[in-house]
Design a protein around this nucleic acid. Sequence first.
DNA 1: GACATACTAGAACGAGATTCTAGAAAGTTG
DNA 2: CAACTTTCTAGAATCTCGTTCTAGTATGTC
Lengths: 215, 215
Amino acid sequence: MSAKTRESTKPMLASIKEHPGKRADSTARLRQRVLDAALTCFAAAGVEATSVADITRLANVSTGSLYHHFDSKNGIAEALYLQGLDQLNSGVLGRLNRCRSARTGVRSVVLQYAEWVSANREMAGFLYAGDVVMSDAARLERKRMYGRQIRAVFEWFARYVARGEMRHIPADTYVPLISGPIQEYTARWLSGDAQRSPAALKALFADAAWNAVKT
Amino acid sequence: MSAKTRESTKPMLASIKEHPGKRADSTARLRQRVLDAALTCFAAAGVEATSVADITRLANVSTGSLYHHFDSKNGIAEALYLQGLDQLNSGVLGRLNRCRSARTGVRSVVLQYAEWVSANREMAGFLYAGDVVMSDAARLERKRMYGRQIRAVFEWFARYVARGEMRHIPADTYVPLISGPIQEYTARWLSGDAQRSPAALKALFADAAWNAVKT
DNA sequence: GACATACTAGAACGAGATTCTAGAAAGTTG
DNA sequence: CAACTTTCTAGAATCTCGTTCTAGTATGTC
């Protein structure tokens, strides 16, 4: 089917490589092309409704090639998911670590969250759609990431809790209290049930977050 | 394959019908058997990993029969999803409508939510897993349900907002502020990342909800 | 310049969702 | 109750993918 677009036996990558090109280079390029194409498809139609053929077509890659670099269609979805989640998490954590008071820290979590999802709508939509069926390995990885995030966030908060500037509640309730509302609102927005972007309402949700955990 | 379990040409429904049995009766019975079987499978393994054969086997129904009553495997998932969501919503709304003060009303939403998910873990897990790929029709129906719920909840709140007992904020931010945290916590609990059941922490989240919207 | 490794291509395979064909039960009408 | 229609059941046949397999082609190394 896509044989028509292949004009010769020369690899199509030749035209993309600007330098003589190490193999590693073109490999990385192809992997990325596949990931980009997959995100576009997944965000538009969901993982299940996207066929491998859709991805190979958009990425301009053969079936064999795709399977040489990835385990399975779902493996691509998992890789994207973990990559997106990590990006979101580290954005939040990075900003939090530059804060110097309990209030700005708590607010920063919400603000960063709102800004990120508004700026990365395609990835956010993919993450929220939740149609990635996680393998045990990916599930474990996600749990590890979530645990690390919770721990890092909680450690940051700990000193303020100790000083009595923040409430003392079970460790795993901080994140739901702080980011639950903005996440819930974001889900509505992504599914088209809410009009205003999370970024437009970030102040409201940031205030609410601080209000929920301050003493 | 399942021919082994079919002992004769007599319909297996005969043994189930206690009355002479109208057709509508046995039809409803079969539909429900399929839905029950599907929920069990979906909750255990997810929609994608469940085969139609799994469902027909557990429900003791033939392929043709199943497809006579449902469009597709995904159609079954959609029906279950909407049914579960409706149950959850009406539970919340019913309880809210029996409340006589802003504070008890707001708290009741959270309490009901926590109790329902803790009591209906299988359905809750299915709803939260989010692995139902919604058709346009189902998406529309969900939007309609969500809109109705938001409106009903907001109408209830409206009088207290007018009296100045509750904050005046955009209509579609009340639900995220009130139930966002408990929902977020529930998601963690269902995926095994949090230990205590939502019901065990309901008071904490109910207080937080009231705190978030009171004046 | 021969061998190894990394990669690409697309055909073949197999699992499983959906459709099709045949026929049985229930309901209706005379 | 006999003829006829409609609803429902059964399971085989089909068709759509995801994945694997076979046959290569480039790149790098000695």
